[in-house]
Nucleic acid binder design. Structure first.
Lengths: 216, 216, 216, 216
DNA sequence: CATGAATGAGTTTTCATTCAT
DNA sequence: TATGAATGAAAACTCATTCAT
């Protein structure tokens, strides 16, 4: 359905003007994200986005001041959805380790189902690398605070080896899933059973008991 | 010293014409890599690269067919140097685990000392994302074969837990260092003691002995 | 008072619908003239004019077919007011020379008090210079006929030197005040006592009696 | 002759590279001035100027940073030529009044022969009216200093009526020729014998001897 | 009458690449 | 080989105008 064909009937009772505007904004963001990811920021013309939406170029500029702003809206929206997806997944469990596992699985699946978001993260850095920090890391740090509580609980509960701090663990797992996500994306790998493996090594390491003894 | 001033005197006895050309090529690549990383591929003009080198714009085209080719040469050169650095570091030890540790430390330090290479990897994907696979992964897979041997030895020697395959381990550690490297790069973190931590968790996991029992 | 708030109550008894329309037209012209002069024709947006008036953009198009027509209405209105101002000033005196003086003073004062009109004359020529003749000159020639009578009387009455024709005098004084007006406008000068000087030189020239003798 | 065909032969002995550049700059200015005047600043595309010159659009940008800079160069060049023309004309005579007459004639003839310069003055004000003062007035004030000397001599020599100051005279004649020039331009009038008339009235006024007596 | 969301034509400027010298 | 003047394709963004409500 073309954006231009949406909402032409008389449902104005429920949806206010600003609702409809927000709705169209989201539709624009969704389409733009797809095309930005497909063609790259530079090669994605505003004209293409508009025509894909079935509207005129000028209309895009009624919703976004510039191409850059549209792009940023795409990244922001993607990160918000990622965050929400991960949180929702985590809420399905109560046990800390289960929540962590669920969150990581959701994270990897999100990018598998929304590969355009991985591309947008790259595009953002490539084209706007004068910005202090990629949006991704802003969100990563925001979520860090929430997970800190969970890990602290595990640490104080004796589930974690002595000598590891919450920050070290958070960094490790954060870097691991970040690298895994991009590798999956570039090599076309799926998150499926990979997830169990990651958690396994993360929790138990690769060493055999014999080696644990020697290595200590 | 400007490139244009180099090698103007009579040392042609030792260095053949093609040597000199290769040398200038390398100088061009070094300068271009720095500028590509600093300004981004799009905003880095051939004119800037040329003037930084002290040569005319047209001269660059005597060494590289196009801006894209120059860029690719930068990425290739960077990956070659990475590979060499890592291999050299690994050769300093004999014990497999030591070699692995040394390689990972060298990897992280390389990108810390050559942050422009991290940028180039991003730029490559952002601007030439119609290519099947980032150069980085081509090199990663090439080196995989060398490390496979090392890990196979460890596995058959009983140093590694049952149930893990070489490929799983290679993927895990590959993703981990990849994610760590980019995070370090974006957040300005240093590889220093981080390295010991990574190896520690990688080898032994995060679980306490109590949890290991429960979690099994 | 916003235009949109004007005349909303029941005074339709006296003012007919077309009266009200004419009134709003004038308000639009006044506002537009100010903004056209302030920003220049190109940089003055219909949107600005509308919002300054407190109406929607589309409303302007109910009164003027196009931006160009609105602009022309501004120039026309300005020239009509100039004409009226000058004529009214002239009617205050009976003696021909006094009427002439009064008219010239009124002319210079008009543009001093309505500097936007000077700007509009420039804008008109700059943007619509395919037109045969600036509106200003149309009005100037129209008024010429009225003044021709006055001067003819002075000529036949012997007040004017032999050898000068009415047309020559009209051209001279017309050019003089035109040039004076624009110079005043651009350099921010006031018409004040300048007027007396202009008339003095115009009537008596600059030569001393001695020079008159020699120069003849 | 197309600009692109100029100077292709081997006269590089005399004309240095910078000479040729200056020459091309002038050719560009001449062509641009004509087209700016013909089409107006807004409607005159850089493409048109380039193609009229027989060069590519980009070449214009090697000589002028922007359309605006090209335009300013046209106005400046025009004013310089005006100044030179007027000065040269004045130098043909020795007697002050003759020099003044010659200068005014040259001024009016210059704009008659270069009507595009009159247009450029209008365009400049219309499009860049945020600038403090039109270029014309900058030049007018610069030349004022030179003429001040001439008039001071006439005043002290008794050729000028008592009660007139040099500044008053300079303003009067400046405004008069400015207004005359533009009127000529707009109405397509020629400066020819008009010049004699202007000087006549300027020097002797319009009053008859009888009126002089009465009016005093 | 009034509104304001939607339209889409139109132009400057940049910069990779070429090629005559 | 080296130069650098010349080329020209390409795209974001604005804003006058329209018209459904």
């Amino acid at each position: 359905m073309k954006l231009s064909e949406a909402k032409t009937s008389a449902d104005s009772s429920a949806a206010s003007v600003s609702d409809r505007k927000a709705e169209r904004r989201l539709a624009m963001i969704a389409t733009a994200a797809r095309l930005f990811a497909r063609d790259g920021y530079a090669d994605c013309e505003m004209e293409s986005v508009a025509s894909e939406l079935g509207v005129a170029k000028g209309t895009l500029y009624l919703y976004f001041r510039s191409k850059e702003e549209l792009f940023c809206a795409c990244v922001d929206q993607g990160m918000r959805e990622l965050q929400e997806t991960v949180q929702q997944a985590a809420q399905g469990s109560i046990a800390p380790f289960d929540r962590i596992s669920a969150a990581i699985r959701a994270y990897l699946l999100f990018f598998e189902q929304h590969p355009e978001q991985a591309e947008l993260l790259i595009q953002e850095r490539a084209f706007f690398h004068d910005r202090p920090k990629p949006t991704y890391f802003t969100y990563r740090e925001a979520s860090r605070e929430r997970w800190r509580v969970v890990w602290a609980e595990l640490l104080s509960g004796g589930s974690i080896r002595d000598g590891l701090t919450v920050d070290q663990i958070l960094d490790f797992i954060g870097n691991l899933v970040y690298g895994t996500m991009f590798t999956n994306h570039f090599l076309g790998r799926s998150a499926g059973e990979q997830h169990a493996l990651i958690m396994d090594i993360f929790y138990r390491g690769i060493w055999s008991d014999a080696q644990r003894h020697t290595g200590e």
